[in-house]
Structure formats: structure tokens, C-alpha cells
Simulated scan of single mutants.
Amino acid sequence: MVIWTVANQKGGVGKTTTTVTLGGLLAQRGYKVLLVDTDPHASLTYYFGIDAEELEVSVYDIFIRGKDITSEQILQSLCPSGMDNLDILPSSMALATLDRSLGNKGGMGLMLKKALLKIEKEYDYVVIDCPPVMGVLMVNAIAACDRLLIPVQTEFLALKGLERMIATLALMRTSQKRDYAYTIIPTMYDKRTKASLEAYKELKAKYQDKVWSAVIPVDTKFRDASLAQTPPSEFASASRGVFAYNTLLTYLLQQAPESA
């Protein structure tokens, strides 16, 4: 089981779109995929028409039950996506209380990783969607991953969010004594605007080979797909945005040691 975490300490950069689209494309390629929503706002959960406020169990239970949670209980928390090979571990607004209730307890940073290991035989890939705030949830999501995917909108305010994200990785690298493979993904690119061109140029200059060599363009089909509560790969398979994500996925699948 390979785990990718999609994170950035700035909202509105395409994290949920990246999670859903890559998940849909992986499922279409025949992989068994689990999408995990660790954002209290539950954008990923609502994307698939799942009402986070009506759920009896969610990813929240992993943190509350801790090491005592069983693989059966985790699997019972899952929701179908409506697409073959693709399941959802939904979010809950109760996640917003975790930093206050559990943030100071020791050993909290690896709870999600340990839970996912209990169901590792069920899935080829797990893709985790993160909140844009540094805390227990983001630490867990990053600690669980084999590769971190960092979507960055090609505009200058988003570059500041990336700087915070890289600083967070440096802190985690020191505290956990492990390195983190990561890929920066330029998103919402509009070649007609100077802002996109200049931001992309700065990204490449500053982060070099950590930046994926292509871009995810602005594409209204992403919005239409979310309204239809369907992964873009299913809703508009021929769109330029899906084509770009397909190219990204091919690149990510080639990265060692992450082959399912």
C-alpha cells in the first residue's frame, strides 16, 4: 500500500481537486484506492455527496479509539464513492476539537499511519486530503505518507504558503528523524496572465527538481465535476485538466520506491 498526502498551509490551491482526480484516475487504472478526508471542513466528504454531519463513524474515530481500533471498525467507517475501486474514509466536524483535546498527548503523530497499516492489504493506494492548518491532523497525514504532494496555485500569495509548508517539513524531518519525499504541483495555471507566468518561473527557480515539470491548468470542468459529485476523470475524461493530472499520475507512479 502506497500513501500519498496532499497538503499545503494555504487554502484554495487545489488540494481536494488533486486528491479526487488522482484517486479517480488510479481507480480507472485498476488500483484499489482509499481517499481519506482529514479536514474538519469535509470538502472531500461533501464532494461525494456524503453529509459529514449525519455520519455515525468517520476518521475521527481513529483518533478517539487510538491503538484499540480494529481493522473491522476502520472498514465499517468507509463510504462508497459511487465509482468502482474507490472508497472514502470521511471527515467529521468533530475533528476540529482534536488539537484542543489531544494535541498535547504524546504519540499522537502516528495514529493515522498505524490505523492505515491495519487495512494495508485492502488497498493499493491511499490519498489523504489535509486541512490548510498545521496541527495534529496535518502532522498525522504527513507522518503517514510515502510521498507528499504540495499543490501550489501559480500566484504569489500561494508561494508564501509553500514556504510555510517547506518549513513544516524541515521541523518534522528533525523531530521524526526521517526524510520526506515531496513533489510540488503548480495548479490553476493560466498562461494568459503574467501572474501565473511569473509565479511558475519563481517556483522553478527556487525549488528546481522538486517542482513537477508540467502544470495543472485552470479548467472549469473541475467545478462542473464537483457539482455532479463525480471525479473529473469520470465526468470529463477528455478535458485538459484531467489530461494534465493523468500526466502527473504517470510521473508519480514512476517515482521509487512507490510502486504498488
Rank of each mutant, 00 (worst) to 15 (best):
K105G: 00
V133L: 13
R240K: 13
M93C: 00
Y125M: 01
L116F: 09
L137D: 08
L252A: 08
L89Q: 08
G12E: 13
L148C: 05
Q176L: 14
D37W: 03
M1A: 06
K10V: 10
A199M: 06
V139F: 00
D37L: 02
K114R: 15
D37H: 01
L75R: 07
V136Q: 13
G14A: 05
G161M: 00
A214M: 11
V215S: 02
V127M: 09
K15S: 04
S239Q: 06
N104T: 11
P80A: 05
A96Q: 15
D37E: 03
L102I: 15
Y251T: 12
I184E: 01
L34K: 04
Y123S: 01
Y46V: 15
Y180E: 06
V57D: 12
R147A: 10
N85C: 04
L75C: 00
K32M: 07
Y245K: 07
S71M: 01
K191C: 07
G161V: 04
D224F: 07
I184L: 09
F48S: 12
L171P: 02
L98E: 01
F222E: 05
A256S: 15
K210E: 06
A42R: 10
V59K: 13
E122Q: 15
G14N: 06
I64A: 12
M165S: 14
E198V: 14
A181P: 01
M111G: 00
M83H: 02
V136Y: 09
L116R: 14
A94M: 10
I185Q: 05
L44E: 12
A199W: 02
K210R: 08
G24Y: 08
G106A: 11
M165G: 14
D190S: 07
V127D: 02
Q76H: 13
L86G: 01
L102T: 15
K177F: 02
S91Y: 04
D68Q: 10
Y251K: 13
T168R: 02
K191Y: 10
F235E: 05
A181L: 09
T187V: 10
A236C: 07
L253P: 01
P257G: 08
P232W: 14
E54D: 06
T183K: 08
Q255C: 12
H41V: 05
Q176C: 00
Y180S: 03
P257E: 10
Y189G: 10
S77G: 05
N85Y: 10
T193S: 07
A238Y: 03
I50S: 00
E122K: 14
K210T: 03
S77H: 07
